[in-house]
Design a protein around this nucleic acid. Structure first.
Length: 425
RNA sequence: GGAGAGGUGGCCGAGCGGUUGAAGGCGCACGCUUGGAAAGCGUGUGUAGGUUAACCCCUACCGAGGGUUCGAAUCCCUCCCUCUCCGCCA
């Protein structure tokens, strides 16, 4: 949520900055400004009346104590009350409209990110490692996994529908190993605290991180309980501190969490229908940070490095991309994507998305921090995948495959797989 | 799901329906005292919104939302959460 005061004071500048996303919000901002004026005007009326009311009521108390008559004062308060109700209703109405509009306006893109309206505007920052060389035609992950009896997509479709998977045997074991490996690295080497949060969350949580109210159609919703399946651990973990004021001495706070993620993938019909790339349910180890504003930029770089550390340990070839203003998510101000090389597809594929949100989420969720002296301030939130386990599964199989359909296990992962060196039939 | 108890400031803990934004204590900050420290003494110490150049001032907030009343932390209703007991259950 943007700061109404900022909008009030610099409407044009905010509009200009938002325009980089490819949508013009100027009329919304002007409407906000008008509503805000109305609100403050009504509030003045209401507060003046309340002040008068307070004084009169106190007078009634005094008069009654003395045994004097207070009828006229009581009558005046009664009539004032009617006016107060009217003005308060106007205030409330303005506030509701303001909030409704604010909740639908995305975050302002960071000035440092490139212009562009879609992913073609993204910029490659660095490429790490090298493409593996194959002296045979590399298979895709589905062929490999099914060949090794690791995966059963057919029965998954029977059980739940398309875009679901059953991992089996070494597949299930590998997935489990990847999750444990990533959690261990983030906790033991990168200094994150592990959380295991609820997979269902309420409306307030979804609103704070920005999934609601605008993207309800992307979520799985419980029919009878006003709860939503999380699309990412970002939601429960960021909301861990909703409506709290943290001490600056505790910052930065760094959490990692494994959760499954549930996405309806509405609007992506036909995209990535093969295999594990785009599923309704997938597993992810998430990284979430709460930091002071002046450290947000540095902390984002560190977060990316923490996500990268997994890819490096596994010896995977990848690149880092900074997203352009038109391609960042609704709540984000700056985003780096990590894209891993997939030999069978012959392209880089997103495996992590690391974003800085400024105070956008903390305003929505009322998450603040307090320095030793001074007023509470909005905290800055960051998060990123560290990493998506399903896609990492794909990357490992495709990159470490051998001509006979077996798959080598990189050394870093072997302790999690009984020190085996290869998956084979 | 049923029965009971409870939710007050950073924490503990008072609070007859009428200067209670809220006693008292702890904690914290600053000052005095001291060779230094502790103790002691003094002062201060919530948040949000409005207004202002700023200070002041005004309004709201005692789990949340309604209601009664001239006036509600105090009375009534609904909901949420916590604890105890029962039921159910991996």
């Amino acid at each position: 949520m943007l700061d109404i005061k900022l909008i009030r004071e610099d409407t044009d500048k905010v509009a200009e900055a938002l325009k980089r996303r490819g949508t013009d919000f100027l009329s919304d901002l002007k409407k906000l400004d008008a509503l805000d004026n109305e609100r403050r005007n009504s509030l003045q009326h209401s507060e003046n009346l309340k002040n008068r009311k307070k004084k009169l009521s106190a007078e009634v108390g005094r008069l009654k104590k003395e045994g004097a008559d207070a009828e006229s004062q009581m009558e005046e308060v009664k009539s004032i009350n009617l006016e107060i109700v009217e003005w308060d209703a106007k205030v409330a109405e303005s506030e509701i409209q303001i909030r409704e509009i604010l909740l639908h306006i995305p975050n302002i893109p960071d000035p440092s990110i490139p212009d562009g309206l879609d992913e073609s505007g993204n910029e490659e920052l660095r490429v790490i490692g090298e493409r593996p060389a194959f002296d045979f035609e590399p298979k895709n992950h589905v062929e490999l996994a099914e060949g090794l009896d690791m995966l059963d997509l057919k029965r998954a479709a029977k059980i739940a529908g398309s875009r679901f998977a059953v991992y089996k045997n070494d597949g299930a074991r590998l997935l489990r190993a990847l999750i444990n490996f990533m959690l261990d690295v983030q906790c033991d080497e990168n200094g994150y605290q592990e959380l295991y949060p609820p997979f269902l969350v309420n409306k307030e949580s979804m609103t704070a991180t920005g999934q609601l109210p605008k993207f309800e159609e992307d979520l799985f919703v419980m029919r009878d309980d006003d709860l939503y399946l999380i699309p990412t651990a970002e939601v429960p973990v960021t909301n861990y501190h909703r409506n709290e004021t943290l001490a600056d001495g505790d910052l930065p706070i760094k959490y990692t969490a494994y959760t499954p993620c549930f996405r309806r993938e509405a609007g992506s019909y036909g995209k990535d229908t093969q295999g594990l790339i785009r599923q309704h349910q997938f597993d992810k180890v998430e990284l979430v940070k709460f930091v002071e504003p002046e450290n947000a930029d540095t902390e984002l770089e560190l977060l990316v490095a923490d996500a990268e550390s997994i890819l490096k340990k596994l010896g995977l070839h990848y690149r880092v991309v900074v997203l352009c203003a038109g391609d960042i998510g609704f709540s984000a101000t700056k985003t780096y994507d990590l894209e891993v090389w997939l030999p069978a597809q012959g392209c880089f594929r997103e495996i992590s998305s690391c974003s800085s949100f400024g105070d956008y989420q903390s305003r929505r969720g009322n998450i603040r921090f307090k320095r030793k002296t001074g007023k509470p301030e909005w905290i800055c939130t960051l998060n990123g995948s560290g990493l998506a386990a399903g896609r990492l599964f794909v990357a490992l199989l495709e990159n470490y495959q051998r001509a006979d359909g077996s798959v080598a296990i990189p050394p870093a992962l072997r302790p999690y797989l009984k020190n085996r060196e290869v998956f084979e039939i």
